[in-house]
C-alpha cells in the first residue's frame, strides 16, 4: 500500500501540485466520466462528437469566467455579470429585431453597454474605494431593476443570419466554441506576455507595492473590470443567438455570477488576487461541465445534483486552501 500512497502523498504536498491541481481535477473528472459511461454501458457518450457537445455547453460560462478571472486576479470580484448578461441579450435582440442589417449596430450597442458597466464598476472600486463586492452587487441590482422595469418576457428577435453564431459549426466544431478558445488564448497572451498582464498580477498581489513601483493601479483595476464586463456582454450576445431572442432572466437563471466565480476559484486563481491564470479557469469550466455530464449519465436526481454541486465547489477549493497556512475569513 505504502508504495502507492507515499508518492501520492509527496505529490499532494509538492509545490507543483498546487499549480497543476486544476488539471489533476480535470483528469479525475474526465476519468470518472469515462468509467461511469463504460460501467453503465452507455458507450455512445464516448465519441468525439459528444466531447464537442459537452464543450459547447460551456461557452456562455466559459466566456464569462475568462472575464471574471481578470477581476479576481486584481483581488476584485464581479457580481454584476449575470444581470449584465441578461441586459446584453435583451439589448442585442431588441436592436436586431429580425433585421440582418442591424447585426453590427446591435453588437456595437452591447459593447457600449458592457464598457459603461465595466467603467462604472472600475471607477467605483478604484477611485471611490467602494468594496468591490458591494459595488458590483449594487450594479447588479441597478441593471436588473432597470431591465425588469422595461422587459418581462422574451424580447426582440434574432435574425436567422446571426443564429449562426450559436449554431454554426466549422469542421464539426461550433463557432462559439472556437471563439471561446481564441478568447482564452488571447487572455493567456495578455496575462503572460504583456506589461499590462504583469501589472495585473502586481496590483492583485500587492497593490501598495505596485503603486510604489510606479504602476497606475487605478487604471489597471478599471481595465480589468472593463474586460470582465465586455466578456459578460459577449456571453449575453451568444445566449441571445442561442435562444433566438433576448430573455431578461437568462443571466440569473444560469447563476453566471456565482458559477463564474466558483469556476475561477476551482481553477486555482485565489480570491485574494495576484495568483492564478486563464488555463486553470478553462479547466474549472470543463470540470463543471463534465460533472454535469456525469450526473446526467448516472441519472442523479436534479436536487441531489444541486446538493453535490455545493459540496464539490467547497471540496475543490479546500484542496488548495487547506495547505496554504493562511487564516481564512
Amino acid at each position: 500500500m505504502s508504495i502507492v500512497i507515499a508518492p501520492l502523498k509527496r505529490m499532494f504536498e509538492s509545490r507543483r501540485f498546487e499549480r497543476n491541481a486544476a488539471f489533476y481535477l480535470l483528469l479525475l473528472a474526465g476519468l470518472g466520466y469515462v468509467l461511469i459511461a463504460v460501467a453503465t454501458g452507455q458507450m455512445q457518450y464516448l465519441t468525439l462528437d459528444n466531447l464537442v457537445s459537452i464543450l459547447g455547453r460551456t461557452v456562455a460560462l466559459g466566456i464569462t469566467a475568462i472575464g471574471q478571472t481578470f477581476a479576481i486576479l486584481i483581488a476584485s470580484i464581479d457580481l454584476s455579470v449575470a444581470s449584465l448578461i441578461s441586459a446584453a441579450s435583451v439589448l442585442a435582440s431588441v436592436v436586431m429585431n429580425g433585421d440582418p442589417g442591424m447585426i453590427v449596430p446591435a453588437i456595437l450597442a452591447v459593447a457600449v453597454l458592457g464598457a459603461v458597466v465595466g467603467l462604472i464598476n472600475g471607477v467605483l472600486i478604484a477611485y471611490f474605494d467602494v468594496n468591490p463586492l458591494i459595488a458590483t452587487l449594487a450594479m447588479s441590482l441597478i441593471i436588473q431593476g432597470i431591465l425588469s422595469a422595461f422587459v418581462t418576457n422574451f424580447a426582440g428577435d434574432v435574425p436567422e443570419g446571426f443564429q449562426v453564431f450559436a449554431y454554426g459549426t466549422f469542421a464539426g466544431v461550433p463557432y462559439a466554441l472556437i471563439l471561446m478558445l481564441l478568447l482564452a488564448l488571447g487572455a493567456w497572451f495578455v496575462l503572460r506576455h504583456t506589461r499590462f498582464g504583469a501589472n495585473i498580477y502586481s496590483v492583485g498581489g500587492n497593490p501598495a507595492a505596485a503603486r510604489s513601483a510606479g504602476i497606475r493601479t487605478s487604471r489597471v483595476i478599471i481595465s480589468a473590470h472593463l474586460i470582465c464586463s465586455l466578456c459578460a456582454a459577449l456571453a449575453g450576445i451568444y445566449l441571445a443567438s442561442r435562444l433566438r431572442a433576448g430573455a431578461p432572466w437568462i443571466g440569473a437563471d444560469g447563476v453566471y455570477d456565482l458559477e463564474s466565480i466558483a469556476v475561477v476559484v476551482i481553477g486555482g486563481t485565489v480570491l485574494s488576487g495576484g495568483r492564478g491564470g486563464i488555463w486553470g479557469t478553462m479547466a474549472g469550466v470543463m470540470i463543471f461541465s463534465l460533472l454535469d455530464s456525469i450526473f446526467n449519465l448516472t441519472g442523479v436526481d436534479a436536487f441531489v445534483k444541486q446538493v453535490l454541486r455545493g459540496v464539490i465547489i467547497v471540496g475543490a477549493v479546500a484542496l488548495y486552501s487547506y495547505r496554504s497556512g493562511r487564516i481564512a475569513a
Binding site: 476559484v265 436536487f303 481564512a328
Partner: peptide, 19 residues
C-alpha cells in the same frame, strides 16, 4: 479547511437549496 467564507457559504447556500 481554510476555504474563504464567500466560497464556503456559497457552497452551503447551493447545497441547502438542493436539500
Amino acid at each position: 479547511l481554510r476555504v474563504p467564507s464567500l466560497i464556503a457559504t456559497l457552497g452551503m447556500m447551493i447545497s441547502l437549496g438542493g436539500l
